[in-house]
């Protein structure tokens, strides 16, 4: 099963690295700075929104998040992006509603969106505390 799962994942990884490489070499660093130019709260909301509408294997979000970080995007925004990617599922929402119920799915995804921002804020605070220690 693992070999099959990995075989299914590998083309997606290759395709994603290809696309990320294209985006990174095509879009100037200043564009990322302009997208995430608000304060840490606004940046984390933008990161969460981007993560919520994205879908795919978590490993893909690590690759994109890592490249964003290298392009100067803050760790708070990247954390919100990573957490929302794996906990908020707008793409899977119809399936979740159909199987687990509309009320549950909407509440769960709404709370997960808020939680992704909260996680980013907590991580930022903890990283600051640890850097001073």
């Amino acid at each position: 099963m693992s070999a099959k799962a990995f075989a299914g994942m590998f083309p997606v990884l290759l395709g994603t690295i290809l696309l990320v490489s294209l985006v990174v070499t095509s879009i100037p660093v200043s564009w990322y700075a302009s997208l995430f130019r608000g304060n840490e709260y606004v940046n984390s909301v933008i990161g969460s929104l981007l993560g919520s509408v994205s879908a795919g294997n978590p490993i893909v979000s690590y690759i994109i998040g890592g490249e964003l970080l290298e392009r100067g995007v803050s760790i708070t925004a990247v954390t919100a992006f990573l957490v929302a990617w794996v906990t908020v599922g707008l793409v899977q929402l119809p399936a979740e509603i159909a199987i687990l119920g509309k009320r549950f799915a909407l509440y769960r995804n709404g709370l997960a969106f808020i939680a992704s921002i909260a996680v980013a804020m907590i991580i930022m605070a903890l990283m600051r505390v640890l850097s001073y220690a």
Binding site: Y62, G65, G66, I75, T79, V83, A118, V119, I123, M127
Partner: peptide, 24 residues
């Protein structure tokens, strides 16, 4: 998948993220 996360963000960030996510 944690080795990939550690590769990009470092062990300290990944451990903190796991702990905070579990609490949340």
């Amino acid at each position: 998948l944690l080795p990939v996360a550690v590769y990009y963000f470092g062990i300290q960030f990944v451990v903190l993220l796991m702990i905070v996510m579990i609490a949340i």
